[in-house]
Design a protein around this nucleic acid. Structure first.
Length: 355
DNA sequence: AAAGATCCCAACCGCCTAAAC
DNA sequence: CGTTTAGGCGGTTGGGATCTT
């Protein structure tokens, strides 16, 4: 329930500010400070609402505003911070001296977002586009299984097999739910403007490629579940052998030098955690509890850049993903909880609850 | 040169939060 | 403790500027 607009009075002027109005506002604030924005227009002799005055001042008239083109350094800062903070424009603006949240928001919407999209990067997640994410799923699963083998987490072949089957079932159910959901009138713009891109339901906002990709993924899962391809697929699909023959490659993923690494994270001071061992190329974690939600968030810093994922589930960290160079992420990929929920049994690091 | 398309950004709108009452 | 409200925020829009055909 929002409050009613502060400018109910229809008599107040709207629209572009005239130079005279600007002058009055600047003069008043320089002499008196803004004080109560609601009271300011009357005191200053402006036929505007207080909100309009505040916006005009903070976004345009403030003397410390830096105008002009964004420098490459500023662009990088915005990209990095947006990957961490999302559309928290005021928070991002806090790191860019002289830039307003509105200016950064506009610059993002008109320049940076398009640039990421053109580079095949989802501007919301800062990761390769959704289709690419799905195409990487089988590779991730293979890595997971390899990791488990290397780590010796399975006590027996049978236990390992059971776990793989359980995982595969979870993944399949999820993917099937995607394909069975009603198909919205998906367009590229609907994906771009999707306000909740990380929710599973929104993964439906994919065009026909989704079906193809999903089929491939399902096919690959059946391969993982049955690596020898010698037993019937769990789909019971007679044509699955044909699908299986289409062993697709993962052009976006380089050959990994290291499988997903094991590492230990121990609490140091307050909510900060340091990685004590492990071969991933980052230096620190910083989990924290969002004050506005029940989810935990996790900042990971690789010495050059910081990324974030959030949620209560374990995190999946894949080294060697090298498709996001324009925003500086090159050493790893953090998957979000909607994805990690598909892999519930992975013994990865999960941030400790923050008091 | 003109019309249409696209870009850009200042400004507005509606919602949220926290402080005041 | 519940209600009201100022300030703040992010999303969206309107229209001028610029580009394309």
């Amino acid at each position: 329930m929002g409050r009613s607009p502060c400018c109910d009075e229809s008599r107040v002027k709207k629209g572009p500010w005239s130079p005279e109005e600007d002058e009055i506002l600047v003069k008043y604030i320089k002499e008196h400070g803004h004080g109560s924005w609601r009271a300011l227009p009357k005191l200053a002799g402006l036929n505007r609402c207080g909100k309009s005055c505040r916006l005009r001042w903070t976004n345009y008239l403030r003397p410390d505003i830096k105008r002009g083109k964004f420098s490459p350094e500023e662009e990088n800062t915005i990209l990095h911070l947006h990957a961490i903070l999302g559309n928290k424009w005021s928070a991002i603006a806090g790191h860019l001296e002289g830039r307003t949240d509105n200016e950064i928001k506009n610059y993002w919407n008109t320049h940076l977002k398009k640039r990421l999209i053109n580079s095949g990067i989802d501007p919301v997640t800062h990761r390769p586009s959704t289709v690419d994410m799905f195409s990487s799923l089988p590779h991730l699963l293979a890595l997971v299984n390899l990791n488990e083998l290397l780590m010796g987490h399975q006590s027996s072949i049978e236990e390992h097999t059971l776990r793989l089957q359980a995982e595969a079932m979870a993944k399949i159910q999820y993917l099937q739910s995607l394909t069975q959901a009603p198909t919205p009138q998906a367009t590229t713009s609907s994906m771009v403007n999707d306000p909740c891109p990380n929710t599973p339901s929104n993964n439906n906002h994919i065009n026909g490629l989704m079906d193809i990709e999903t089929l491939k993924i399902l096919s690959s899962i059946s391969q993982i579940e049955d690596p020898a391809c010698g037993s019937p697929s769990m789909f019971g699909n007679p044509s699955s052998s044909q699908v299986r023959e289409d062993c697709f490659s993962f052009p976006r993923l380089p050959e990994l030098q290291n499988p997903i690494s094991s590492f230990q994270a121990t609490p140091s001071k307050e909510n900060f955690m340091k990685v004590e061992e492990g071969s991933l190329n980052f230096t620190s974690f910083q989990p924290y509890k969002s004050p506005k939600s029940s989810s935990h968030q996790l900042l990971v810093n690789d010495g050059d850049a910081t990324m974030k994922c959030h949620g209560d589930d374990p995190y999946i960290i894949t080294p060697g993903f090298d498709g996001i160079s324009s925003s500086g992420w090159s050493d790893f990929l953090l998957e979000d909880p909607s994805f990690s929920s598909l892999l519930p049994q992975i013994p990865f690091y999960s941030p400790s609850p923050i008091p």
